[in-house]
Each structure stands twice: as C-alpha cells, then as structure tokens.
Amino acid sequence: MAQRYNSGLGWADVTPKAGWLNRRHLMMTMGAALAASPALAATGPYSTDEAPNSLEDITSYNNFYEFGFDKTDPAAHAGKLTTSPWAVEVDGLVDRPGSYDLVDLLKGLPVEERIYRFRCVEAWSMVIPWNGVQLSHVLDRVGVQPGAKFVQFTSLARPEEMPGVKAGLLDWPYREGLRMDEAMHPLTLLATGIYGEPMPNQNGAPIRLVVPWKYGFKSAKSLVKITLTDRMPYTTWNALQPKEYGFYANVNPEVDHPRWSQASERRIGAGLFASRVDTQKFNGYGDLVADLYKEQDLARDY
C-alpha cells in the first residue's frame, strides 16, 4: 500500500511558495540559524528529515549535458524544451509494450513526495523533495516478463532543442540502466515534480529516474524509452570511461573514483561556507538496499 506514504499534504501546506523561493535570501540576511529549521514535514519512511535545498539551488546547478557541459547551461537553455505532448515507449520483455502517453502511463498511480539525498559522482550533494511514482508501479502496469533481468532507460536526444546533443558532447541518446531488483525497489522513483510543482525542464522534465543510493548520473532525465531486457544494457558513462564509471555506481566512500576521492562531499546551498560532510555508503540508504548487493564485491562491481 504505497498510498499510506502520502500524507495528502503538499508543499503549499507547509511552506509558502514565496518562502521557499526566498529561502536563500533569508539565509543570507538572517544567518545560518534559520537554515537549520525550515518548516518542512517529513513524509513517509523513505524521506529524509534533512533540510531540502531551495528550488533555486536545485534548478540552477545541474548536470544535463544535453544542454551543455556547464552547471548553468541547463537553466539557460532548457526553456526551449517541448515537454507536452510526451510519449514514453515501453519495449522489450513486457506484456504490454507500446508508446504510452505520459498521462496514461501514470494515470491512477499514487504520486508521492520523497525527500532524498542526491549525491553526484563529482562529490557534491543536495537534498531534493521529489514528487513521483515508484518505478515498480509503472513496471507492474506494463507487465514485466519473467525473462527480464535489467531495465534500460533512454533520455530524449532532440538536437533542435538541445545544444549539447547538437554539438555531439556525448554518445547520444543518454542511456542508463538498473538491475531488475534495483528497478523494483520502493526507493526507485519516476519523478515528475519538485516541491509539488511540475518537473522543471533543467531537472529532466517531464519525467526522470531517481535512484537515491546511486551517483546522480544513474538518474536519467527526460525519459522517452524504458526497455526490459535479459542482459546488462549499454549505459552512457560506463561505455565512455568503463574504468571510471561502473554499471552499478552505488555511492560508496570506500571505492574512489580513479581520479578523485569519494570519501566526503560538499553539501551545496550554504553559500561560501557550505559544509563538507562524510559520504555515507549507499548514500545513507544502506539499511534499505545493502541486501541487494550482499553477494557482490563492491570494489569490483563499482
């Protein structure tokens, strides 16, 4: 019963929009004491009670290479992205393959609020209040066949609206993947919004993956295709630099990126004095997901 995690309250009930838009400003003028106590209600067992980043933080600091390499490129260029109509193709080992209109794909499924830590492979992190549906519910709806072992996610690659695609910055379209047990895990979300608002374009509108115990690049944005398959799928960063980016990409302070340490991370959002905190294994979700990997050597399956 996923419904029980939905309190029925939205962000508007606890924080006025102007309040969270201005949180940054308030923090700067009134000092850090305020930052520690924003009026936020934790919703359900999967959400953290850490203070979420402001909408400004979340929407102006993005890695979305379809719009360029710089963190500010997505906010600058994603405005042109057409997100309606939006179809998601579901194919491979499913009972009901086809091209689904986004509205139909999600109709009737419980939209939940999940406040997750988000840890980038570049060693920075944020706390983000997502809205979305569990991926498992969508997969149940399309009917996963017994032979399916993995899920591949394909992002939009539309050169006329995406300068980074046009410039060929990576091998487009962006693709990511999960093992079936990871995909079915209740933490794994298909997010459609942030702070109760529709997903901002620069964050992967209109629908994106969120896998909070893995590095951010696993959480593919602007999904146009979900493929059920019996073999480990092609994933973009893994194909580009296999020694640096593994298929699993679980957050793990014990397994460094070959070029930089993953021992700690800088929490974005407190300005000049954003604190550096120790990185937690599985990004702090170990009690919920560590079992998935108990047979594996995580230094090898990075």
């Binding site: 102006s60 600091y61 963190k71 920075w124 800088r266 974005i268 300005g271 000049l272 954003a274």
Partner: peptide, 15 residues
C-alpha cells in the same frame, strides 16, 4: 561577486 551573491549556488567551486 561574493558580496552581491553573484557566484551561483556553489560559490566555492566558482571561486
């Protein structure tokens, strides 16, 4: 830029 808040959400990296 530090005092006018012009360094974006991650001023440390920018500096």
């Amino acid at each position: 830029d530090v005092f006018t808040g012009n360094l974006g959400v991650d001023p440390v990296k920018t500096i």
